[in-house]
Structures are given as structure tokens and as C-alpha cells.
Design a protein around this nucleic acid. Structure first.
Lengths: 160, 160
DNA sequence: AGCTAAAATCGAAAAAATTATTATTTAAGG
DNA sequence: CCTTAAATAATAATTTTTTCGATTTTAGCT
């Protein structure tokens, strides 16, 4: 399967860009590009979820069972990626700290606390205001997250 | 010291309100109002910081050394308070999960991922858009939270 | 391709954070 | 004051995260 946004390796151009940026970053800091680091980046890229270190580790073990990537490597790499602002970490509610690629499109979440359904949305007005706010305070925004909690229309009907 | 917003016990009216809401909540759920729970609430109220469970525990031990409040009680109470939406938790960067009172004025967060400083803000435009979005989707909003991550002006200067 | 030095990895152990357990104490209501 | 259910402290157990030493791997060089 291939489409207009994939290259000869069937990877998206976006991912190739991310990967080459990562390689550049490593070189700049005299760090080495390892298979483990690539797999971690790739797995983060392929996942739309926000992942805990443990969840990420599991995904990697499924994807590359022969490459016995240790959990410590996952932690070390996530810390490196976070320092470099390649990934962001955040925590939702009672759950632990979760990581996601920072390079992806921003999106916000509507979360139904009854059925758990998550709807993503982007609102231009809100985005604009966020930029206005950060500009005014001379704050350099790298990412943002917004969650609206409540009851979706389906669940409201169920409740009647 | 006393001022117009404090009552005979030299506590703010706002705090008294919070406390009585908390007592109501406990009663409604057949839970008990304990000295430990009061101290935890009070300490959260008195602190303008966002506190880790451990930091909160230390503050409590300083405030009430004779009342050997256990760390487990702090965790349990924070979980209870979070479930009840009396406190919110947020986490970022290398630092752990932090808690703050949710009963104070609603506000969003600007979080510097470099120094950890948290700046609170409220933007009426954003609040309006949130309501517009949920109204349009017939989603009944109960709560929302927003965090903007990035680098504060001080840290930007440090980086030069 | 082979050599070398620096860095990264694994695996395991240690440390830190969080949660569960149990015996005892405490709050709330009669 | 009594009773009972719930909360607590203390500690143990579990889970999460970090550290450490031995070994492997990478990157640059020849």
C-alpha cells in the first residue's frame, strides 16, 4: 500500500522529516542514532494515542520482539526526546504521565465522562486567542492541550 | 491580623464556603470529616503553589507536627478530592503530578517546560468559544481544562 | 572493511512513588 | 456514653522510575 504522501520506503514524508530532524539533533549533541531510538520514535509516530512509558514499551516489544528493548531505554529516550521538545508529556486525570509526539497537529478533546467517547476538534478562534495570549506575555508556546469534560448527546438521551 | 474578608476565626469567607461545601460532600457520601482532611484542604487553600503529594505532606507536617499525618492519607484524600472535582491535578516536564484547588476561580495554565513555572490566566473569548462548541454539538459540559506548554520569557533569555 | 573510543544498551538492582493491608483510633448519630 | 462504620497510622507490598556495571554498538577514521 502506498499513497502520494509516502516515499519509496512507504513511510510518510512527515515521518522522514521527523526522523532526519532527530538524527540532526543527535549529531549536534554527539549522541548516537540507535535502532532502539528509531523504533521508539517510529512507534510514537504510528500511535495516535498518548502513551505511558510502559504502554510504549509493550508496543515496541510487539513490533520488534527480537530487539529486546529494555524499559530503561524507553525511559532514557523519552527523557531525551522531551528535553529536545520532540515529545511532550502530559497527564489526564487520575492516569499517570503520558507522552505524545509534539510535532503533530494540535487538537483538542471533548471527553464524554459517561461512555468515554473522545471527539477531537480544532477551533480557529481558540487557537488565535492562545497565540494572542502567549504573544502578549512573551511566552514561546510549544504545545497546548485542552479537554472539555461532560456528557455527549447520545448519553444525554439514554439518561431520559 | 484581620480584614474585611475574614470571619471571627480569621479565615476567609471563601475558605469557609469551601469547607462547608466539602463537609456537605462528605455527608452526602457517608464519609467522615476528619482533622486530617481539614488540614489537607486548608493547606491546599493556603498554598498558591501547585503541590506534589510529597510537598503537601511536608507542608502539613510543618503546620501540624503533632498530628502525624501519613503520606497514604494524603494520597487517599487527594484522590477523593480529585474525584469530587474539588482539586485538579496536572503534570508536565520531568516533574511529577501536581495538585491544586479547583474551587478557586476557574483558570487555565501556562506552563514553562524549562523552569516549571505555572502562570494562571482566564480568557473570556476562549470560555465563550468552548460554550459555543459544546452547544453546537449538543454536548453538556461539566468541566474543562487547558494547558499551554512552552518557554517563559525568563527562560528564553537564559537560552541566549 | 577493520580499528578505536565514546556512547548506548541490557539486565538487574536500587530508589522513589504509590497503593494495599491490618490493627487501632475516631467521628457521627442515636 | 455507646455503637458502628469509616479513617487513620504504620508498615508492607507493589509499581514506577532511575542507576549501575558489563557488554555491545555506533560513528568516524584509516
Amino acid at each position: 500500500m502506498s499513497n502520494i504522501n509516502t516515499d519509496f520506503n512507504n513511510r510518510t514524508i512527515e515521518y522522514e522529516q521527523l526522523l532526519s530532524d532527530f538524527k540532526m539533533l543527535l549529531k549536534k549533541n554527539n549522541l548516537k542514532f540507535t535502532i532502539q531510538r528509531e523504533v521508539i520514535l517510529e512507534t510514537l509516530y504510528d500511535s495516535d494515542e498518548h502513551l505511558t512509558p510502559e504502554a510504549l514499551h509493550h508496543l515496541i516489544q510487539d513490533k520488534q520482539p527480537d530487539l529486546k528493548t529494555g524499559i530503561a531505554t524507553v525511559y532514557r529516550t523519552l527523557a531525551l526526546l522531551e528535553e529536545s521538545h520532540v515529545v511532550n508529556s502530559l497527564s489526564f486525570g487520575a492516569q499517570g504521565k503520558k507522552y505524545e509526539l509534539g510535532a503533530k497537529e494540535h487538537h483538542d478533546h471533548l471527553i464524554c465522562t459517561q461512555c468515554g467517547k473522545i471527539t477531537e476538534f480544532v477551533d480557529e478562534e481558540i487557537e488565535k486567542r492562545q497565540h494572542a495570549i502567549t504573544d502578549e506575555l512573551n511566552f514561546k508556546m510549544s504545545d497546548h492541550s485542552m479537554q472539555i469534560y461532560g456528557t455527549c448527546s447520545e448519553c444525554q438521551e439514554k439518561n431520559i
